[in-house]
Design a protein around this nucleic acid. Sequence first.
DNA 1: AACTTTAATGGG
DNA 2: GTCACCCATTAAAGTT
Length: 587
Amino acid sequence: MRLHPCPRRGLRALTVPGASAGDAVPWIVVGAIGDGVALVPVAADGSRGDTTRLDRRDFADRVRRTEGTARWVWSDTTAWYPALLAGGVRVARCHDLRLAHAILRDSARAVAADRLRSATEWDAAASVVDDGPSALFDIDPGTREVPHDLDSALAEFERQREVIAASAAGLRLLVAAESVGALVATEMHAAGVPWDAEVHDGILTGLLGPREPAGRLPARIEALGAEVRALLGDPGVSLDSQPKLLRALHRVGVAAASTSKWELREYDHPVIAPLLEYKRLMRLFTANGWAWRDEWAPDGRFRPVYVPGGVVTGRWASSGGGALQMPRQLRPAVRADPGWSLVVADVAQLEPRVLAAMSRDAALADSARDTDLYEGIVSRGVVSTRSEAKFALLGAMYGATTGDSGRLVPALRRAYPRAMGLVDDAARVGEEGGVVSTWLGRSSPPPSPGWRALQGSAGDPEATEADRTRARRAARDRGRFTRNFVVQGTAAEWALAWLGDLRARLAALPLVDEVDAAPRSGPLHARQAHLAFFLHDEVIVHTPAAHAALAAEAVSLAADAATRLLFGDIPLDFRLDLQVRIDAAKE
DNA sequence: AACTTTAATGGG
DNA sequence: GTCACCCATTAAAGTT
């Protein structure tokens, strides 16, 4: 069985409307009609085929039969796809109207997008739906959503096709990449990250003491709390209330202005060490303790909710479970199932490499060539230590003006004028109130009315010096935002291309059944290598151990493919730190 | 009582 | 060690 008909050509997953006249695979627009589902083929020239009406119970089967010869167009992947996955159906390609609308509506590179901007019913957040076959039909009535009916989908797809056809090619690719990201996000939520409760327990118990009944603190936190209160001379003081803790600290002569650990560690007082330890353990207990696992990883899988396009730059956000801030401390709890392995890969210095590629800065690309990029900057004599190189480059991309990194930026500007010119230009445009765009064409939001008013009032004859200072500061703030936007946003595009390509390559690997000859049923992610986690520049693939080498190769090949897809044939590698983890089998 | 904001800390 | 960019989550405090 092959769900993806073109296994070696991962880029097929990124095919976009109108991209190739010779590509006969039709778009099939999916929409709700009454209690059922309707499908309407749309050809490359926009002509529509006959409408097929289905009972919603037959939807997954129909998609399963048609998949491979279709590209699915639907209102919102979060509304339609969970039911398909629950029915054991994975699709290779889709066009997510909600996500595409947001990109095309705001892009400075979109041509004739006025009609899209008028279709405000498509300005909405993702569906808030539960998993399960009836996901689409269990919509929370209080949530503003995009329309899911067939006519709305057909009309919006028509508008989007026109804009895409008239616009720069990058937008086609961006819409396709964003859509495949939506598929990946839903699939990863369904599959989850393999999470070993025993390892998690071991970490928690070792640091906090055994789990206590609800409402009780673990012994180690209790003990530290008692010690701290004794040293503060106040047995009743609440350590979790910032103002109360601060007052108690002042009473014993610690004149801190805040209770942050960075500030507290500057003080030499016996209470500091146990207090910092108390805070550290309390954080672990409240954010990632037993209660967290009961809610987010109750069944041996951690299932964060990914939100593609949730960040203004195009990065993914998350909602629930704290997928984006799983502490490194807990990483050991991510363990492959028995007989399976994890392929863990992250891109070394993704953003600096993206900057080198998009600015076509040959000197920076050269510094990234045969070694660690930061070491490359040092070996070319730009700065003298690796840590200086790192802070200088981060400072250049974030807009630092003070401190060590600000001091080092001029040296970078001399060595890498094209790269620095790109981010400096983006900052200037932002300060002037303009809009900047990523490599593929995602645009920054325009300045707020408040920002414009502030700049305008600073030009008034009656403006005070304070007005002008505030306006200047706001302009600089916006400049730092747009400076970073172009790099962070393009890095997000590279990562989407990586994910999309990798997903197709993994789907082409054999099913477990084909390896151990023991026929199995169940979801595809239980039978085949699959993406399990993604975080900006890092992926985790959960794979049958027999396929670990193939999966690792796929991760590397996908990174190369993403680089070529975005930037063409450039002399620059996106180096991966790649590990294959084969965890010892549990009893 | 319900909601929003703040401070702190976790991630890239 | 710091913070310059993008975030989420928690508890307590503040607001309505």
